[in-house]
Design a protein around this nucleic acid. Structure first.
Lengths: 218, 218, 218, 218
DNA sequence: TATGAATGAGACTTCATTCAT
DNA sequence: AATGAATGAAGTCTCATTCAT
């Protein structure tokens, strides 16, 4: 039964990789990429130094592979919903996106610390690869949604979809990064459900009161 | 004239310290804290390695002393004092804030790079101190403006001023951090004037088209 | 039939050893002894690392066992048996020797590379054993031929046969080692037939022109 | 007197480099390039590991710089003599060359062991650089001498100067390498003066007896 | 017997820091 | 106060060898 053995081995190997990456995230988050040592990571993964190199070619490879294993899977369900027909649909979907972002960031706060601090020292290729896996790039999908929504008349005709799609996650990320990553302390006395709801409404309807809404530009 | 000599010496010493710290910021920004070497910094400061240690006890000391010398310019107010009377006033003021934020981040890009790269080495207290020195966005003031605007009927009555005041700069910071600090690569093909203008409009009037603006909640 | 099985096993085992040693020579020649890894060798032999150790105790053992398997072909005689009667006979025989040397070195280039790369690791005894296994030049035989030729008046009476017999192959080996083993790059734009012919003529008739040939010493 | 200090420092630095290179040669010769450790070399040079890197960028750099410091200076005086007018002049000069080669090889026997074993793993550029410093390349000068001698009628008109110039050192190197480097034991019971003399005569007048010297080809 | 993951000693190299000049 | 060579701890990575399967 060599086939069975091969399958078992492959599974074991995948387990090991995950186990190592999880250890790497823990150590990177605690010490930063440069201060983390392979020994730390190996110890945290319950392996010896040399074994790490049976699974990853270098320390940088560890960094590069973290998002693939930890962040991407969490991102997949985002924005898989049907095309919205009413603005209420949009609101519901955006709320989902917002809650998704909140969830991901909270879940991966340790990783984001690693990510942010390590980003400047990655090679451009690695950087690109890294970023393409992050929530910000949900922006591209959101941009598509906005464009379709504009054609359907749900959104302002003079909206710049590219800018708006990138501004939206930023509204949330500020809280999230500050509270979860940078300061680890609350900035406003609200829970994230409230914040997400407010943010979505702000994005959709703006801050201006009804009577001050201008006629939109063509 | 030992007193004169002493004074001269003190002044010279202070100059040297500044000179070294400025070099340190340049190098930290370019290479990240951990990758920066004392030799880099000494070279950039026009001194030799050993001399650095006549002014600072260690590399960490350099990091700790940076903000005191470099963050002052960012303390200027972002908002003009006058209370807004029309929504157009608000739009103008927000545009000013937005452009202020853009300016500040671009101006302090190197410092932000240092901050970001040193993130995992900073204690929570140090992180807070750093962040408080960098009033990247004048959230408290903006919150006040929004509250006054709400009382004046310019803004939705159901707006959460605290959340909105913090969400607004986030809309811009995404672009700024990515383009100026983390990626050094444009995310959208617009200049910051356009981005700032769009962001302000998005904040004020939202994304939804006119006919989909809901009645605001009480 | 335990006896048959045992015999089969022994044969198989011997095959495996040979297979491994041949792989080792290939890899040693390509990478040098120290740079060769067991993994390289195992891969080249179509086995896995661990299996090598079922046949050889260590990497050094591989080195030690190589010649027994690979140097035999070089033992064939280089000189035909017949005694030369004219200087033309001698020239023909030397040409044969020269071409033999060329052939041998080219044939054993990989082994020579191994030998050369392993040089500093070999004990003087091992070095001698290796060299004696590689009768790269049939110095003793050539010495005998020269002595007989001297008695027959074909060679200068003042020739030192021992020195000459060892100098002759050296004339060729320079080209051969450089071109085939060390540099893998041509030193002169001639093929080996030309080089061999020239070398033989140089050996027999020297470089001086006819009118400058001295009277030979007694 | 900063100028004096600078000069002193430069001299000291050059001394250190030589000191390190000499240690490197010792260690490389004893252990081979790959088995030699920086610690060995540093210890042998009376320095600590890190200090080596103040003078050489890498272990390979050490290897590459050895011939420049140790072999080239010994080679310079070779073949600096006046143009030969008689065959006796040539014989005297070649004897000098031969004795020079003997001297160099004996002197640098340890280095040649390093050289030969390290050669295959050098980059092509380093190899080229390396070889250009070795006695074999005296061949180019010898080739020039031979060509001039041919024009002057001292040498056979049908001589191939390129081949002859490279064959000549080979006649000696065989002895030398075997006796000094590979076997470290005598092959023939002669001293090097005798060997050198015999070799030169063999090269100039060949092995054939007077009455068997052919008419040279045009 | 074959496999290949695990091991860990040991290599090269970097760099903050010290110190004699 | 300035220099920069020296130091050596510490880090990443390689690889021969072992061993459970």
């Amino acid at each position: 039964m060599p086939r069975v053995t091969a399958a078992v081995k492959a599974r074991l190997s995948e387990t090991r990789r995950t186990q190592i990456l999880e250890a790497a995230v823990r150590v990177f988050a605690r010490r930063g990429f440069d201060r983390a040592t392979i020994q730390d990571i190996a110890g945290s993964a319950g392996l010896s130094e040399g074994s790490i190199y049976n699974y990853f070619r270098s320390k940088e490879e560890l960094l590069v592979h973290i998002p693939q294993h930890l962040v991407r899977p969490a991102l997949e369900p985002l924005l898989e919903a049907a095309a919205p027909e009413t603005i209420a649909d949009v609101e519901r979907q955006l709320l989902q996106v917002a809650q998704g972002i909140v969830g991901r960031v909270k879940e991966n706060a340790w990783f984001l610390k690693v990510f942010v601090s390590a980003l400047p020292r990655l090679s451009p290729r690695a950087r690109e690869r890294y970023l393409s896996l992050l929530p910000l790039y949900a922006a591209e999908r959101l941009e598509g949604v906005l464009r379709r929504g504009m054609r359907a008349g749900l959104f302002r005709q003079d909206l710049d979809a590219a800018i708006a799609a990138r501004a939206f996650p930023g509204m949330l990320l500020i809280f999230l990064m500050m509270q979860e990553v940078l300061l680890e302390k609350k900035l406003v006395p609200h829970d994230y459900n409230t914040i997400a709801g407010e943010t979505v409404r702000l994005f959709l309807y703006g801050a201006a009161s009804r009577q001050h809404q201008p006629a939109h530009r063509p």
